[in-house]
């Protein structure tokens, strides 16, 4: 009896999977998107017979088989950050200021390829997140938080992207009091204004 149940269960799973595949491939029917049009703009003078764009291999394609290994998901569950006392928060902002990305230091490490952002850009993210969480939970920390964010946004040696995130957050946490924006560079203001709202 048990064995029968197991077999039935497996058959059920296979049937569900088959249904999934049908839906999957049905959903793959596609049309050319509007942005995909290609056009010919170059006319070569050499008239030697060219090969087609893709020449199929003579033997069985050696293209690798579809990936069968599935990645096990284990993204961490978001953990609330600690609640800080005033001295601890001060220490946090000191640490954050020291970790802000600075191009001079990044170049000193020999990094030369900036096609994508250097990993140093985001090393301060943990501290920025913790500062935001702290200000959200304890309004008494807001003046110290504002001070850190202002210093960050004004720091000329810090990467513009980080200064812009600080300025955006500074505007968020000074929403009820005047903020002199004229002291911040236009480029930092422009990037700050283009960002999603402070979380």
């Amino acid at each position: 009896m048990k064995k029968r149940h197991v077999v039935l269960g497996v058959v059920g799973i296979v049937a569900l999977y088959a249904a999934y595949l049908v839906g999957h491939y049905y959903g793959e029917e596609s049309v050319t998107p509007s942005g995909s049009t290609e056009r010919m703009i170059v006319s070569p003078t050499d008239v030697a017979l060219p090969a087609p764009r893709v020449e199929a291999p003579k033997s069985i394609p050696s293209m690798a088989p579809p990936t069968v290994k599935r990645v096990v998901e284990h993204s961490p569950t978001p953990q609330p950050s600690a609640v800080f006392s005033t001295p601890e928060f001060h220490e946090l902002t000191q640490r954050a200021f020291a970790k802000l990305p600075r191009m001079a230091e990044i170049r000193k490490k020999g990094r030369r390829d900036f096609h994508f952002a250097p990993p140093e850009l985001t090393e301060v993210a943990d501290e920025l997140g913790a500062i935001g969480d702290s200000l959200e939970r304890d309004p008494r920390l807001v003046p110290a938080g504002q001070d850190f964010l202002r210093r960050c946004a004004l720091a000329e040696d810090v990467m513009q992207a980080a200064r812009a995130v600080c300025l955006r957050d500074l505007k968020h946490w000074t929403a009820n009091s005047p903020l002199d924006l004229s002291v911040f560079p236009d480029v930092v203001k422009r990037i700050a204004d283009s960002l999603p709202p402070t979380p």
Partner: peptide, 23 residues
């Protein structure tokens, strides 16, 4: 913008990337 499960630190990370790309 849809990452309701991201931590504050992860959102800060993505915001730094977005700022870099916008700049």
């Amino acid at each position: 913008n849809q990452c309701t499960w991201c931590t504050s630190a992860q959102l800060a990370n993505l915001d730094l990337q977005i700022a870099d790309l916008n700049g």
